[in-house]
Amino acid sequence: MGRERIVNAALAVLLLGVPLWAHWAGEPFTITLATRAAILALAGVGLNLALGTGGLVSLGHAVFFGLGGYAMGILAHHAQTFTPLPLWDLPGTKSMPVIWLVAITGGALMAALIGALSLRSSGVYFIMLTLAFGQMCFYFAVSSPTYGGEDGLSIWVRNGFPGLNTLDPLQFFLLAYAVLMAVIWAMARIKASPFGLALAAARQSPARLDAVGARPFRLRLVAFVISGAVTALAGALFADLNRFVSPSMLSWQTSGELIVIVVLGGVARLYGPVAGAILLVTLEHYLGGISEYWQIALGAALLAVVLFARGGLIGALAGRPVAHD
């Protein structure tokens, strides 16, 4: 466990240090890349609870990511056009804390609905059910004309956070970084709690869990709901980073990329998604600059990790995790 702690601390310092250096060196785009990595890492941290700790391979987490994005898009859209929200006669908002709250609540409710329906099945059926719900939401967003359909929604100015200037790349990065660290801290607490241990046990040996009278369905549903809520929060931040949201956030490829982030970094590792997101953003940016066929290299790297480096980047750096059982 000791070595993993060191790796985790190094990752946290790296993710914070690079943008600070970039700010000093006058390279704002590097800060933007770091922000992207931090937000994708946050989405991965959300997915990791379901995927890693819970063993629930969801190929539909883009639903929550996109839902968070649309929470930001819709609220800000009504605020900037001074129109009330359609159902409740409320104004929109440009305030991040409110948007986050809406995104988290929406993500949790959606995850409760999808989870309640999908968790009745398991294995491949669960994967395919989550994919199916993802496709439903995707097509709904593409063809519904109210909020831009496939064109998506553009926000003219990034939303605000009390006391910060979010238009400044570094300040927005620090905000995203703080959220990420807070959520990772919370996740560590969840994993160490009786709930977290029972959830891991439900993955490792459901029979034994049954014997002690715990109900895996409820455990998994709660994990899925928390996971969806965190991913939705990441979606709201991601949309704010781009000042834009569109159905592509809901596509199954996005779900695939979120899984890639988790696995590249290391499944069920606390900082796995952070490592994975840093690696993915770096590859995307630098390989993309070398060749237009860079996805071949990405695919090969991914394949190598799955086949030869189980445990992902963190596994390679920190060795096997200490077994809990």
Partner: peptide
């Protein structure tokens, strides 16, 4: 299944771009 999904997802990238 997770490893299978991921490895074959990687194969899609390689085969499509190839």
């Amino acid at each position: 299944h997770l490893d299978q999904v991921l490895a074959t997802f990687a194969l899609i990238l390689i085969l499509s771009e190839g």
